[in-house]
């Protein structure tokens, strides 16, 4: 299980920068970033090298954060790699709420972060573990990639 940090920001100039600066000043490395936006606000989703410290400094600066459990799956970086993963979940009738890429430094494979409903998370793990070419990563392994 990967702990993703989700942050609420207003859809306004400088708000994202504010969050990034707080993390930079505290020397917390962002391993992956995804932004979802609605009309007047957005949610920034981050995988941080140091999750707990990141949450602490963000909260200290009155930034609303929450930790969301997500899955990280390593797949071959070739045509069909991602499709195999989505296929497996579809067949198990598991809905993907959102997904985005993680940027690995030490592997040629692709790493996908996936968020499914909390209730089906365990089922998703079991489903993906059965697929030969998919490697589910735990927190430590992911952050070493």
């Amino acid at each position: 299980m990967i702990r993703q940090v989700s942050i609420f920001i207003e859809n306004q100039e400088g708000r994202l920068n504010n969050v990034l600066k707080i993390l930079a000043e505290n020397k917390i490395n962002i391993r992956s970033l995804n932004i979802a936006d609605a009309t007047d606000f957005g949610i920034v989703r981050l995988i941080l090298q140091e999750t707990e410290k990141g949450i602490e400094v963000l909260k200290k600066n009155d930034i609303i954060t929450t930790v969301t459990p997500v899955l990280a799956a390593e797949v071959a970086d070739d045509p069909g790699g991602l499709s195999r993963l989505v296929d497996a979940l579809t067949q198990a009738k598991i809905n993907i709420i959102y997904a985005y890429s993680f940027l690995p430094k030490k592997t040629d494979n692709a790493i996908i972060i996936i968020r499914v409903e909390d209730e089906v998370q365990q089922k998703a793990i079991e489903t993906l573990e059965k697929v030969a070419q998919i490697n589910l990563l735990d927190r430590e392994t992911l952050l070493l990639k």
Partner: peptide
């Protein structure tokens, strides 16, 4: 002002 208790990671929940 949004509070932590009302915050959700999902856009649809906030909407």
């Amino acid at each position: 002002e949004l509070s932590e208790a009302l915050f959700s990671d999902r856009i649809s929940n906030l909407e």
